[in-house]
Design a protein around this nucleic acid. Sequence first.
DNA 1: CGAACTGTTCGGCTTCGGTGAACGATTTAT
DNA 2: ATAAATCGTTCACCGAAGCCGAACAGTTCG
Lengths: 247, 247
Amino acid sequence: MSEYPVGASHTTARVVEALVDVDDAGVTELARELEVSKGTVHNHLRTLERLGVVRSTDGRYRLGLALLDTGMAVRDRLPLYRTAREYVTDLAETTGESTVLVVAEDDEAVYVDVRRSDRNHYRLRPGSRVPLHTTAPGKVVLAYRSAEEIDRYAEATDATPTDRTLDASRSLRDELGSVEDRGLAFDRGELISDMRGVAAPITADGTVVGALGVQGPHERFSGKRLEEDLPGLVLSTAKQAGLALDR
Amino acid sequence: MSEYPVGASHTTARVVEALVDVDDAGVTELARELEVSKGTVHNHLRTLERLGVVRSTDGRYRLGLALLDTGMAVRDRLPLYRTAREYVTDLAETTGESTVLVVAEDDEAVYVDVRRSDRNHYRLRPGSRVPLHTTAPGKVVLAYRSAEEIDRYAEATDATPTDRTLDASRSLRDELGSVEDRGLAFDRGELISDMRGVAAPITADGTVVGALGVQGPHERFSGKRLEEDLPGLVLSTAKQAGLALDR
DNA sequence: CGAACTGTTCGGCTTCGGTGAACGATTTAT
DNA sequence: ATAAATCGTTCACCGAAGCCGAACAGTTCG
C-alpha cells in the first residue's frame, strides 16, 4: 500500500546510504542527518553490524567490505558479464584505450565492466550510472528500444540541456535513428567535454542486451581512427560477444 | 538487547542473501526458503524494489546492479585502496602474475583488489573472503598482531586441518613467527593445492594495514623465482605503497 | 572542575510488520 | 476443453517490536 511496505528496512537503507557519503560517522551525527532518534540509529547500526555490513570502533561507525562482496557477486551472476568480459579485455588490449561494458537499468546506463587505460579514467567505475542519452553505450541500448519507449524516455528525462548535452527534444530522436541504422553510437563530449568514444550493441537472441564501447581523450580520438578504425573494432568485437552469448 | 534490534531489516537482508544465491526467484519460492509468509516476502521485495536494489519482471525478482555501485563506492573510499592500487598494477606488470591487495576484517582476509593474469585466476575476486591463516597475505597481517590476538585466533578458528591446511595448533604460531621475522609469507597450496604465492605487509604509521601479494601455479612459482626474485619485488613494492600511504 | 559533548540503555506507547486466508490470473494436467 | 494446481498480489486482524524521549555513564573540551 505505502511506498515502503517495510519502513524499518527503508530506514536501514538510509543509514547505509548516509555512511557511503560520510564514510565515518557517529550516532548523533547520523541521527541529526536522517532526522530520527539516536536510539533508532543505534538499533539500525547494531543490526547492520551483526549482519557484517557495518564495523564500529570506539563509538564511530563505518561500512565494512561485505557490500563489496555481494556487489561483486551480483555482477558475477550476470551471463552478459561472464561471457563478455574477455571481449572487453580483447578490445582494451587491441585499442589500448579505456573499454567499457554497459547494460541498461531503467533509464540509466550502468557500467558493468570498466578497463581503464594508463592515463585516462574519467572517474567511471563498475556500478557507475549515468542517464542513457549522455554516453555512447547508453545511446546504443536506447536506440534499439521501441519508438514509444524512446518518446517516453525523452519525456521523462529532465534533460537539462547544457552546451553539448543532447536534450530530450528533436535532436535526440534524430541521433538515435542514425545510431540504429549504423549500429554505432559516438561520444562527442556530452558527458565529459574532453571525452570521445564509440559504442556498439551486444545482441543475444535478436535483442540488445548491452553495449560495448571504447572511450578516451579528444586528442587520440579523432579523424580516421575515430570514424573508421575504432568503430570497426568495436563493432566486430561486440558482434563476437553476442554470438558467444547465444551459444 | 536482542541479536537483531531491527528484525525487519534482518529479514530484508536474508531476502537479499537468498537472491544472491538463487539469482532469479519468485515470491513463493523465497517464502518457503526463508520460512516466512508470502505476504511478508512480497512486502520486503517491494521495499527493495523501491530502493532500487531489486528488479522484477512479471512476477519474478532478481537483484539489480545498485549493490554493485555501493560496493564499489565503499572500496573507493578506502585510503589503502586508493593509494595502493597503482602499486598493485606495477607489481602485476613487472611479475606478469596475479596480484592481490588484501586487508583484514575480523578473522578474515578480504581481497580488495585482484589483478588476474592471463590464464590463472583461482576464482578470487574483489570482496572475496577467506580465513586469515589460509592465504599468504592473510598470514602476513595475522603475524603482526599481538601474541594474545594470535592465540585467540588459533582458538577461535575451527581449522579443519586437511592435508596441507595449517591448523590452529603449534605449526601456525611457528610459521607466523618466521613470517614476522622475514616480513614475508608464502602460499604452499593451503587454500588451493596448486597455488603458490608470496605476500608482504603494507605498513602505514608503523602499523600493518594490509598486504600485497602475488600468486600463481606451482609450475611458475618455484626455485629461485619463488624464494628470491618474487619476494624481493613484493617486499619493495609493498614498502613503497606504505610510504606513499604515509604521505 | 564542570559543562557539553559522546554512545548506550531503558520503559512505554503506538505503530507496523507478520500471518493466513482469499483473490484473480496463469499454467499444468487430465 | 476443463479442472486442478500454481502463481503473485491483496487484505484485515492482532500481537510484537520499532521508534521516541529521557536518563545513563563515559570523554573531551573549556
